[in-house]
Nucleic acid binder design. Structure first.
Length: 584
RNA sequence: GGUCUGGUAGUUCAGCUGGUUAGAAUGUCGCCCUGUCACGGCGAAGGUCGCGGGUUCGAGUCCCGUCCAGACCGCCA
């Protein structure tokens, strides 16, 4: 028996009992006559105590030679401390050690195992197994477990069945790049790893599985971000015999349950906003609504004067920055510099200060009088003490730019509070999106999304205007879930694929199995998928998902711990009938 | 594919307009310390300044290239 108790559970009530503990040496305070040692495991820290009066000379010697992160087992007596530590749960007691076994030694770790470690991301990733011993990472993984557990409980109680779907599937042309796996037994052919179990869950609906969910790995070979990994986990869900409203209600229920269970937060009915309105008011299809700062469109009150920049713009749009009038000239210049960065791409920024006495001072006073500026303030909702920031240009671009500025300002002003939760449904996404590169439309959500009733005809005349039965769940400015009502009849699916540029043969080759299934009694169905990594991170008050994944990849998709990806040897290539054709 | 920021001791960082022997904190090691818990005190060791080239009497510092890391844009149905 390695332990009778863990390192987080002993209390004063255990005094004078003999116990055995095992764990890692967190730190040693060697005072010469006595030695204090913090023993750590997943559950906490217990102080071990050795002193010259009661501890044998050999044992003192042995204890003083221990190093950080040694794995040890100790036997001893629980005693109440002479000086207690109110900061830790086990602070009332310590263990007077009588036996010490070194289970394993350790090199000096490259960074400290503390909540605020001195280690940078690089080292921490390389020694992830050490990093996991730290509270923030450990607790993030525990939080993830709790969320997954709560999801399984909630959905199981709602009669959902968790079904596994295959990882070795077929590559499809739509969507993200696939990770591809060569098949040894089928020379020259490849599996692809699923970007999501989309078609399989639809086939489960045809199979009568009615309510399905799965917590499942998905794979996309695209460039990474702080909130994007090449392999990530979805809570994938699908229901048959449902309309959009049924799905929204079911998964609003799930999300509300999680917020309550995990964060103790009660949320009102989730607001809903149309995609077009989200773009107009926030310039963004995943608006953070924890703070106001809604867009005010200013064309009508800016294009009547001689200011050419505004007059030639498709859209002039501004936001009110709360308390922004306190910004110095230099701070505003920095904002202007910020929006001109290539990543944002604005050509400039016009501003108007809203003074406390009700007057305005703008960077374009030459062109606009107080009356004009008062209208800007009114339309953007600016009050005395605020700052109105105005961008202009091409509608889509300027919205994206102002949205970036809005988020940056909110971050700077501390308006994005991690313990505040503002969920939001964004509805009625466009069905199709124009792709500049390939010069054709592609599905904004995916090719199986159904158009709004009665809009099928619009596909021929004005495809960009067709709206879909598609919805996203947004939490604090992050898309945490998205789904749609699917097409469930062969004819409509064929029309969709035709508009996406598939010939009949291509459609047959790629999606024949689905079209076939639709001919054998496919029920109306729809669903949603949540990004578990992102969801957990946000519930944990973070926007970087890496700490919520036990073994994440870095920015370039590398696992720096195991050093993957890596070359394989010629023998393996030969077996797979593969030949490399490397650049340069 | 692009933009920006960074790479100096085990670790986190400082190092100005180029100028003696590249510093601090922390960690490590040694000695001391009878109630510590971020223990304390004294001392010591620890550096190809990412790599390659260039400018210069002289480069951690300036220039060019390159590699690596992070954030973002493109991309991510």
């Amino acid at each position: 028996m390695y332990r009778s108790h863990n390192c987080g559970e002993l209390r004063a009530s255990h005094s004078n009992t003999e116990v055995t503990l095992s764990g890692w040496v967190q730190g040693i305070r060697d005072k010469g006559f006595m030695i204090y040692l913090d023993l750590r495991d997943r559950y906490g820290i217990t102080q071990l105590y050795f002193d010259e009066e009661r501890t044998s000379k050999d044992l003192m010697e042995k204890a003083s030679k221990l190093g950080r992160e040694y794995v040890i087992q100790v036997k001893g007596t629980v005693v109440e401390r002479a000086s207690k530590n109110p900061n830790i749960p086990t602070g009332d007691i310590e263990l007077l050690v009588s036996e010490l076994t070194i289970l394993n030694t350790s090199l000096v770790p490259p960074f400290t195992i503390e909540d605020k470690t001195d280690g940078g991301d690089d080292v921490r990733m390389k020694y992830r197994y050490i990093d996991i011993r730290r509270n923030p990472v450990k607790n993030s993984l525990i939080l993830r477990h709790k969320v997954a557990q709560a999801v399984r409980n909630y959905l199981s109680n709602e009669d959902f069945i968790e079904v596994e779907t295959p990882y070795l599937i077929k590559s499809t042309p739509e969507g993200a790049r696939d990770f591809v796996v060569p098949s040894r037994m089928n020379e020259g052919q490849f599996y692809a790893l699923p970007q999501s179990p989309q078609t399989f869950k639809q086939l489960l609906m045809v199979g009568g599985m009615d309510k399905y969910f799965q917590i499942v790995k998905c794979f996309r070979d695209e460039d990474l971000r702080a909130d994007r990994q090449p392999e990530f986990t979805q809570i994938d869900c699908e229901m048959a015999f449902v309309e959009q409203e049924d799905i929204l209600n079911t998964f609003e229920g799930l999300t509300r349950h999680l917020l309550k269970e995990i964060n103790g937060v009660e949320v009102e009915k989730f607001p809903r906003i149309l995609y077009d309105d989200a773009m107009r008011l926030y310039g963004n299809d995943k608006p953070d609504i924890r703070f106001g700062m809604e867009f005010g469109e200013l064309n009508d009150v800016t294009q009547h004067k001689d200011f050419g920049v505004f007059n030639s713009a498709e859209l002039v749009v501004g936001i009110a920055v709360p308390g922004g009038n306190k910004f110095t000239r230099k701070e505003i210049d920095n904002l202007i510099k910020w929006v001109k960065r290539p990543q944002v791409g604005a050509l400039g920024m016009i501003y108007s200060r809203c003074n406390d006495d009700g007057s305005f001072k703008s960077s374009v006073d030459k062109f606009y009088d107080q009356e004009d500026l008062a209208k800007w303030a009114e339309i953007t909702g600016a009050k005395a003490g605020d700052l109105v920031c105005v961008l202009s240009g091409d509608k889509n671009k300027v919205r994206a730019q102002l949205s970036a500025l809005r988020m940056e300002l909110a971050t700077q002003l501390g308006l994005r509070k991690p313990n505040e939760f503002a969920p939001l449904w964004v509805m009625d996404f466009p069905l199709l999106e124009w792709d500049e590169d390939t010069e054709r439309y592609h599905a904004m959500h995916h090719p199986f999304t159904s158009p709004k009733p009665g809009q099928l005809e619009l596909l021929d005349t004005n495809p960009g205007e067709v709206k879909a039965n598609a919805y996203d769940l947004v939490l604090n400015g992050n898309e945490i879930g998205g789904g749609s009502i699917r097409i469930h009849d062969k004819a409509t699916q064929a029309i969709m694929l035709k508009h996406l540029g598939f010939s009949e043969e291509e459609a047959r080759a790629q999606f024949g199995f689905l079209m076939d299934a639709f001919e054998y009694g496919a029920p109306p169905h729809g669903g949603i998928a949540f990004g578990l990594d992102r969801l957990v991170a946000i519930l944990g008050g973070q926007e970087t998902i890496r700490d919520f994944i036990a073994f994440p990849k870095n920015n370039s998709g590398r696992d720096v711990m195991i050093d993957a990806p890596a070359s394989i040897d010629d023998e393996q290539l030969k077996e797979l009938s593969l030949k490399l054709n490397l650049k340069q």
